[in-house]
Design a protein around this nucleic acid. Structure first.
Lengths: 161, 161
DNA sequence: CACAAAAGCCCATGATATCCCATGGCAGTC
DNA sequence: GACTGCCATGGGATATCATGGGCTTTTGTG
């Protein structure tokens, strides 16, 4: 299993701890030489939600940023958004993380948190906010005529290097 | 953990001391044979803020400057701004530094200081000034359609030698 | 040479995160 | 249907970290 899949809603305890779903931890571990000791979390640019990925994924991002041909201002924006805005949350022995207050507030998370698999990354939402968003996404997807066959067709049109 | 990540706001006490975030000290230590005994600080060329890095990184920067293909004026600018304007601040046993008055004034730092991770270096800002900058960076990033995929795509377009 | 200010050093403290162990539910198994 | 694990959840003990204050040493200055 190499991608983050499904949605899980877990409780935030009074200390601010939340369990990262076991299957997500497995994916993180796979990308980090066996043990999932930490996860990178940052604010989504599009939604009132948090994005999360493995350290390795972040390293790849950092590398891409160094190599990318960007003007100074754009690079500065990236570095501010990516590095300054991210946190590395350690995962404890029970598989939990503590969401920093400012990030939890940004996503409106208090009692519960929804972990949403999104392929290479996952998101953390306030469950009710996510439910609304998911419903909207379904409608939009149907209207746009999304289907699995259209996706695989699109993939065939743009072969990978 | 090999990079400076996240943003931390710490207090400046009446003696002018500020704690360097523990995770930043860890990165500095990693680059300096175990112990973080000092940090290089100089004025940012783009912002009303301070740039900081390890001694080792500054040495690498100096080397890069020698090799770089720059005209005399640019080189001169670099040398006056960065090297002449740099200080090596000792880190005390509790992990704090004292910001020299002129540098603190340059960044407008009085009560609090924001330590901003930026991959290989970090910045020190007056927290409110940084908050404004971060917000601007978010907005511009969103408008410019900054996304993880667009970044990795940009990196692919400029392969390294 | 004396004195004041600044810088460095040591220790104290409260808040917070980290570690460790316990419990209960749910699923699959024998 | 009892048993066995995994997994989410909870709570208490301990370590870490940011912060603050006092005291000594250095520095710079009259």
């Amino acid at each position: 299993m190499a991608v983050f899949l499904s949605t899980y809603v877990n409780k935030v305890d009074r200390k601010g701890r939340v369990s990262v779903p076991a299957s997500f931890r497995a994916v993180l571990a796979e990308q980090s030489a066996g043990v999932a000791d930490g996860v990178i979390v940052f604010r989504s640019l599009q939604h009132p939600a948090l994005e999360a990925c493995s350290e390795r994924h972040m390293e790849a991002l950092a590398e891409a940023l160094e190599k990318a041909d960007l003007d100074d201002e754009t690079r500065d924006l990236w570095e501010t958004n990516v590095f300054a805005g991210s946190v590395l949350l350690p995962i404890d022995a029970e598989g939990r993380v503590i969401l920093p207050q400012d990030l939890a507030e940004f996503a409106g998370i208090t009692e519960n948190a929804a972990f949403v698999g999104r392929n290479k990354v996952f998101q953390i939402w306030q469950p009710e906010t996510f439910r609304a968003r998911a419903e909207q996404a379904r409608t939009q997807g149907r209207n746009a005529g999304l289907s699995l066959s259209s996706l695989t067709a699109a993939a065939r049109r743009t072969p990978q290097p």
